[in-house]
């Protein structure tokens, strides 16, 4: 099955949106969730999630704390902060602007 690379720069948006919808999640859940909701079209190179999460931690968009999974494994759970929510809004409107513009260009043909 063909899988599309996610659009450059949208990884933060996807993670932020995923966390906004589901509250607390660990890395694997975030990756699976993005994949499932996009019906397997958007495929994160799963590893690249982690550097991105680190950068988001630095920016203060998410916080992390250790918890246990359903399978009783130790996992790091990420949660959106107020700052992250603000960032999500900003990224969302920017994304919509870009998509809208792209769409207009395409439909103008």
């Amino acid at each position: 099955m063909h899988r599309d690379e996610i659009l450059l720069g949208t990884l933060y948006l996807l993670i932020l949106q995923t966390l906004a919808r589901s509250g607390e999640m660990h890395g694997y859940e975030i990756a699976s969730s993005i994949q499932r909701i996009s019906e397997d079209v958007l495929q994160v190179e799963e590893g690249s999630l982690y550097p991105a999460l680190q950068r988001m931690l630095i920016k203060g968009w998410v916080t992390a704390k250790w918890g246990t999974t359903a399978g009783n494994r130790r996992a790091r759970y990420y949660q959106l902060t107020a700052l992250g929510r603000k960032q999500l809004d900003a990224e969302m409107s920017q994304f919509e602007r870009v998509i809208g513009a792209t769409t207009r260009v395409i439909e103008a043909v």
Binding site: H26, G27, E46, Y50, Q54, R73, A75, R76
Partner: peptide, 13 residues
Amino acid sequence: DLEEEIRLHIELR
């Protein structure tokens, strides 16, 4: 921590 997180991810997958 990072190492453990990655290991968990791969194992779950």
